Simulated scan of single mutants.
Amino acid sequence: MPPKTLWDISPTVSPEAPIFPGDEPYRLNWTARLSPECPVNLSALTMSPHVGAHADAPLHYANNAADAASVALDAYLGPCRVIHAIGCGPLIRIEHLQHAADGLPPRVLVRCCERADTVWNPEFSAFAPETVAWLAARGVRLIGLDTPSVDPASSKSLDSHQQLLRLDLRVLENLVLDEVPEGDYELIALPLKLAGACASPVRAVLRAL
Protein backbone atom coordinates (compact mmCIF):
# COMPACT_ATOMS: atom_id res chain seq x y z
CA MET A 1 0.00 0.00 0.00
CA PRO A 2 1.52 3.38 -0.96
CA PRO A 3 2.15 5.86 1.87
CA LYS A 4 -0.66 8.24 2.66
CA THR A 5 0.08 11.75 1.37
CA LEU A 6 -3.09 13.60 2.39
CA TRP A 7 -4.77 13.57 5.80
CA ASP A 8 -8.28 14.96 6.20
CA ILE A 9 -8.27 16.34 9.76
CA SER A 10 -11.85 17.67 9.72
CA PRO A 11 -14.71 15.89 11.49
CA THR A 12 -17.97 15.32 9.66
CA VAL A 13 -20.42 18.17 10.27
CA SER A 14 -23.81 16.67 11.08
CA PRO A 15 -26.71 17.12 13.52
CA GLU A 16 -24.83 14.74 15.85
CA ALA A 17 -21.62 16.81 15.90
CA PRO A 18 -20.70 17.73 19.49
CA ILE A 19 -21.14 21.40 20.37
CA PHE A 20 -20.84 23.65 23.41
CA PRO A 21 -24.12 23.57 25.36
CA GLY A 22 -26.38 26.33 24.04
CA ASP A 23 -24.56 26.64 20.71
CA GLU A 24 -26.51 26.34 17.45
CA PRO A 25 -26.36 22.78 16.06
CA TYR A 26 -26.04 21.88 12.40
CA ARG A 27 -29.36 21.65 10.58
CA LEU A 28 -30.02 21.06 6.90
CA ASN A 29 -33.35 21.82 5.24
CA TRP A 30 -34.35 21.27 1.63
CA THR A 31 -35.77 24.35 -0.07
CA ALA A 32 -36.16 22.56 -3.42
CA ARG A 33 -36.04 18.93 -4.54
CA LEU A 34 -35.25 17.45 -7.90
CA SER A 35 -38.49 16.65 -9.72
CA PRO A 36 -40.13 17.04 -13.12
CA GLU A 37 -40.94 20.61 -12.06
CA CYS A 38 -37.54 21.44 -10.53
CA PRO A 39 -34.11 20.84 -12.11
CA VAL A 40 -32.06 20.81 -8.86
CA ASN A 41 -31.85 19.82 -5.23
CA LEU A 42 -31.28 22.94 -3.10
CA SER A 43 -30.48 22.95 0.60
CA ALA A 44 -30.24 25.57 3.34
CA LEU A 45 -27.95 25.34 6.37
CA THR A 46 -28.28 26.61 9.93
CA MET A 47 -25.33 26.21 12.30
CA SER A 48 -22.89 27.90 14.60
CA PRO A 49 -19.59 28.60 12.81
CA HIS A 50 -17.95 26.72 15.70
CA VAL A 51 -19.43 23.35 14.71
CA GLY A 52 -16.75 20.97 13.43
CA ALA A 53 -13.24 22.08 12.47
CA HIS A 54 -13.18 25.86 12.58
CA ALA A 55 -11.03 28.98 12.79
CA ASP A 56 -11.94 31.46 15.51
CA ALA A 57 -11.78 35.07 14.37
CA PRO A 58 -10.49 37.66 16.86
CA LEU A 59 -14.07 38.98 16.99
CA HIS A 60 -14.95 35.82 18.95
CA TYR A 61 -13.04 37.10 21.99
CA ALA A 62 -12.77 40.87 21.47
CA ASN A 63 -15.26 43.52 20.43
CA ASN A 64 -14.32 45.59 17.37
CA ALA A 65 -11.74 42.98 16.33
CA ALA A 66 -11.42 41.30 12.93
CA ASP A 67 -14.26 39.10 11.73
CA ALA A 68 -13.87 35.88 9.74
CA ALA A 69 -13.96 37.79 6.46
CA SER A 70 -11.14 40.12 7.50
CA VAL A 71 -8.42 37.79 8.80
CA ALA A 72 -5.35 37.35 6.62
CA LEU A 73 -5.15 33.89 5.09
CA ASP A 74 -1.41 33.26 5.20
CA ALA A 75 -1.47 31.80 8.72
CA TYR A 76 -3.78 28.99 7.60
CA LEU A 77 -1.57 27.71 4.79
CA GLY A 78 1.99 26.41 4.96
CA PRO A 79 4.49 24.33 6.95
CA CYS A 80 3.05 22.81 10.11
CA ARG A 81 4.15 20.47 12.89
CA VAL A 82 1.89 17.95 14.60
CA ILE A 83 3.00 17.31 18.18
CA HIS A 84 1.54 14.51 20.29
CA ALA A 85 0.56 15.32 23.87
CA ILE A 86 -1.91 12.45 24.28
CA GLY A 87 -3.20 12.17 27.83
CA CYS A 88 -1.72 15.51 28.87
CA GLY A 89 -4.61 16.22 31.23
CA PRO A 90 -6.64 19.42 31.52
CA LEU A 91 -3.95 21.73 30.12
CA ILE A 92 -1.28 21.46 27.43
CA ARG A 93 1.82 22.68 29.23
CA ILE A 94 5.22 23.61 27.85
CA GLU A 95 6.75 20.33 29.01
CA HIS A 96 4.27 18.39 26.87
CA LEU A 97 5.68 20.00 23.70
CA GLN A 98 9.38 20.43 24.41
CA HIS A 99 10.33 17.05 22.91
CA ALA A 100 9.34 18.37 19.46
CA ALA A 101 10.23 22.04 19.82
CA ASP A 102 13.45 22.26 17.80
CA GLY A 103 13.05 24.31 14.63
CA LEU A 104 9.31 24.86 14.96
CA PRO A 105 7.49 25.95 11.80
CA PRO A 106 4.95 28.80 12.03
CA ARG A 107 2.02 26.41 12.60
CA VAL A 108 1.65 23.87 15.41
CA LEU A 109 -1.20 21.39 15.89
CA VAL A 110 -1.38 19.42 19.13
CA ARG A 111 -2.94 15.99 19.35
CA CYS A 112 -4.35 15.57 22.86
CA CYS A 113 -6.78 12.70 22.21
CA GLU A 114 -6.24 9.05 21.43
CA ARG A 115 -9.53 9.39 19.55
CA ALA A 116 -11.31 12.73 19.05
CA ASP A 117 -14.59 12.96 20.96
CA THR A 118 -17.76 12.32 18.98
CA VAL A 119 -20.03 13.46 21.84
CA TRP A 120 -19.79 16.55 24.02
CA ASN A 121 -17.15 16.06 26.73
CA PRO A 122 -16.57 19.07 29.01
CA GLU A 123 -13.33 17.56 30.37
CA PHE A 124 -11.33 18.20 27.19
CA SER A 125 -7.69 19.32 27.13
CA ALA A 126 -6.97 23.01 26.46
CA PHE A 127 -3.89 25.21 26.22
CA ALA A 128 -2.25 26.73 29.27
CA PRO A 129 -1.87 30.45 28.46
CA GLU A 130 1.88 30.33 29.13
CA THR A 131 2.18 27.60 26.48
CA VAL A 132 0.56 29.89 23.92
CA ALA A 133 3.07 32.62 24.77
CA TRP A 134 5.97 30.13 24.64
CA LEU A 135 4.95 29.01 21.15
CA ALA A 136 4.55 32.60 19.93
CA ALA A 137 8.04 33.44 21.22
CA ARG A 138 9.35 30.66 18.95
CA GLY A 139 7.75 32.19 15.85
CA VAL A 140 4.52 30.21 15.83
CA ARG A 141 1.64 32.14 14.20
CA LEU A 142 -1.13 29.53 14.34
CA ILE A 143 -1.97 26.88 16.92
CA GLY A 144 -4.57 24.15 16.74
CA LEU A 145 -5.82 21.14 18.64
CA ASP A 146 -8.23 18.23 18.49
CA THR A 147 -10.61 19.50 21.18
CA PRO A 148 -13.36 22.18 21.14
CA SER A 149 -11.39 25.10 22.56
CA VAL A 150 -7.98 26.44 23.56
CA ASP A 151 -9.58 27.31 26.92
CA PRO A 152 -11.31 24.93 29.35
CA ALA A 153 -15.08 24.61 29.00
CA SER A 154 -15.61 26.21 32.42
CA SER A 155 -13.38 29.25 31.79
CA LYS A 156 -14.98 32.69 31.98
CA SER A 157 -11.78 34.71 31.48
CA LEU A 158 -10.60 32.79 28.35
CA ASP A 159 -6.96 33.40 29.22
CA SER A 160 -5.57 31.46 26.25
CA HIS A 161 -7.91 33.21 23.80
CA GLN A 162 -6.73 36.51 25.26
CA GLN A 163 -3.15 35.42 24.63
CA LEU A 164 -4.08 34.79 21.01
CA LEU A 165 -5.42 38.34 20.83
CA ARG A 166 -2.40 39.90 22.52
CA LEU A 167 0.10 37.98 20.40
CA ASP A 168 -1.90 38.14 17.12
CA LEU A 169 -2.05 34.36 16.73
CA ARG A 170 -4.66 32.37 14.81
CA VAL A 171 -6.30 29.20 16.04
CA LEU A 172 -7.95 26.03 14.72
CA GLU A 173 -10.21 23.98 16.99
CA ASN A 174 -12.09 20.67 16.75
CA LEU A 175 -9.56 18.99 14.49
CA VAL A 176 -9.28 15.20 14.12
CA LEU A 177 -5.67 14.07 14.45
CA ASP A 178 -6.37 10.41 15.31
CA GLU A 179 -4.42 8.98 12.37
CA VAL A 180 -1.72 11.63 12.01
CA PRO A 181 1.82 10.68 13.05
CA GLU A 182 3.89 13.26 14.86
CA GLY A 183 5.95 15.25 12.40
CA ASP A 184 5.99 18.00 9.79
CA TYR A 185 3.37 18.61 7.08
CA GLU A 186 1.80 21.29 4.93
CA LEU A 187 -1.40 22.66 6.47
CA ILE A 188 -4.32 23.83 4.32
CA ALA A 189 -7.26 25.13 6.39
CA LEU A 190 -8.70 28.29 4.88
CA PRO A 191 -11.65 30.01 6.58
CA LEU A 192 -14.63 31.17 4.57
CA LYS A 193 -15.07 34.90 3.90
CA LEU A 194 -18.05 35.28 6.25
CA ALA A 195 -18.84 38.95 6.86
CA GLY A 196 -19.43 39.74 10.52
CA ALA A 197 -18.88 36.18 11.72
CA CYS A 198 -16.96 35.32 14.89
CA ALA A 199 -15.55 32.13 13.32
CA SER A 200 -15.59 30.09 10.15
CA PRO A 201 -15.78 26.39 9.35
CA VAL A 202 -12.68 25.04 7.60
CA ARG A 203 -11.97 21.86 5.65
CA ALA A 204 -8.60 21.24 7.25
CA VAL A 205 -6.12 18.90 5.58
CA LEU A 206 -2.47 18.03 6.03
CA ARG A 207 -0.28 17.16 3.08
CA ALA A 208 3.01 15.30 3.25
CA LEU A 209 6.01 17.52 2.55
Rank of each mutant, 00 (worst) to 15 (best):
V110D: 05
Q163Y: 09
P122A: 11
L104R: 02
R141N: 01
L167C: 11
D117A: 15
P148A: 11
L97N: 06
D178E: 11
A137Q: 14
C113Y: 00
S125V: 09
S125A: 15
R141C: 08
D151K: 09
C112A: 14
L172Y: 03
G183T: 02
G103E: 07
S155L: 09
D178W: 08
D146W: 05
V132H: 08
D102L: 05
L158V: 05
R107K: 03
P90S: 15
A101P: 00
A100R: 02
L164Q: 09
V108Y: 00
I188G: 00
L167R: 14
L91H: 15
S157A: 14
G103T: 02
A153H: 14
V108A: 00
R107D: 00
C113E: 15
D117G: 07
L91N: 13
A101E: 02
V119C: 11
I94R: 15
E179V: 07
R170D: 14
C112R: 04
P181C: 06
H161M: 09
I92P: 11
P106M: 02
V171E: 08
D178T: 14
D184N: 11
S157L: 13
D184W: 00
W134L: 09
E130Y: 03
V110P: 07
A133S: 15
V171G: 03
G103K: 04
V150G: 04
P129Y: 13
Y185H: 03
Q98K: 10
E114R: 12
L142C: 02
G139V: 06
P90V: 12
D151Y: 06
F124V: 05
H161T: 01
H161I: 01
W120Q: 05
H99I: 01
I92Q: 14
D184Y: 00
W134S: 07
E123W: 10
L175Y: 07
R107V: 03
G139W: 02
P181L: 06
Q163D: 08
W134D: 07
D117H: 13
S149G: 12
E114H: 07
P129N: 13
E186W: 12
G139M: 09
S149M: 06
I94A: 07
V176W: 04
C113G: 00
L145W: 05
H96S: 12
L169C: 10
